[in-house]
């Protein structure tokens, strides 16, 4: 994709957004969920998206990951306008969404999960079989790199993984396939302190590898340690954008308190 950019004369640099939502509007029947929503996600940047239930966070996720199509507005992936018809299409374009409870298929083995939807195969035309050996080897390598050593076997069903291990597996998978954008939906909800720390480390390593990360949570304190930029959503719009270092933690709580008061009214 990036080489094609080069030929069209668009300069390739780190600041070009990977995914851009421009003037997105989404309504279900007469209920408007998103109003003129704009968002740019850049490589090597972790963006936190926070807001209360009903603020429109999950609709944003569904639109970027191909579950829902916007009623109006444009989605650009690396500067090119796209229609994200299905999760499969979004995934093909390098957008990986790790849902809190949908990231992993419980009853599949760990290596099958790692390659699900991106299986390596050999064979002729439509008659293809899985490259089991290769997939198992890669999966084992990648998981041992991140220290998932408590696994007894990558042939085990994924339901034997803990919550943190599942998130780690999903994030490792996204970095292995050199994706563009990683969307994390409340990745540390229901995790222990230790597991939370591990997942946050994984997010940072994904950023170092140049992925754009969109981190969705309703809790500021989860997002704040890793996010370069935090977007606060209210009523389907961007209420406030806070850049790292711009405000102190106490100012931050003031902002949140303010928005809380506004919501009360």
């Amino acid at each position: 994709m990036s080489s094609e950019m080069g030929t069209t004369g668009v300069p390739e640099n780190a600041t070009e957004p990977v995914v851009q939502l421009i003037g997105i509007q989404k309504s279900f029947g007469s209920v408007s969920v998103l109003e003129d929503f704009n968002l740019s996600l850049h490589p090597g940047e972790v963006v936190g998206l926070i807001g209360d239930n009903g603020a429109g966070k999950s609709t944003v996720v569904k639109i970027i990951s191909g579950y829902e199509q916007p009623s109006r507005g444009q989605i650009q992936v690396q500067g090119r306008q796209v229609t994200l018809r299905s999760p499969r299409k979004a995934r093909e374009l390098g957008i990986e969404t790790v849902y809190q409870d949908l990231a992993i298929v419980d009853d599949l083995s760990i290596w099958r999960n790692f390659f699900l939807g991106r299986e390596l195969r050999w064979g002729i035309s439509r008659l293809k079989l899985l490259r089991r050996k290769e997939m198992r080897r890669i999966c084992r390598e990648k998981l041992s790199e991140i220290g998932l050593v408590s696994l007894s076997s990558i042939d085990d069903v994924a339901k034997t993984l803990s919550g943190g291990e599942r998130q780690s597996l999903a994030i490792t998978r996204a970095t292995y396939f050199e994706l563009k954008l990683l969307i994390l939906d409340e990745p540390v909800a229901a995790l222990s302190v230790r597991e939370t720390r591990r997942v946050l480390e994984m997010i940072e390593s994904a950023r170092e590898k140049g992925l754009a990360v969109l981190y969705i949570d309703h809790n500021m304190s989860h997002v704040q340690p890793v996010a370069d930029r935090v977007i606060l959503m209210e009523h389907g719009r961007v209420a406030q954008t806070i850049t790292r270092g711009q405000v102190t933690v106490s100012e931050l709580s003031d902002i949140l308190a303010d928005s809380g008061t506004r919501r009360m009214k």
Binding site: S65, P87, R88, E92, L102, I104, V105, L116, G117, R118
Partner: peptide, 10 residues
């Protein structure tokens, strides 16, 4: 099939 769908399985 919700997880599978999220992983791009048709």
């Amino acid at each position: 099939g919700q997880s599978a769908l999220a992983m791009g399985v048709p």
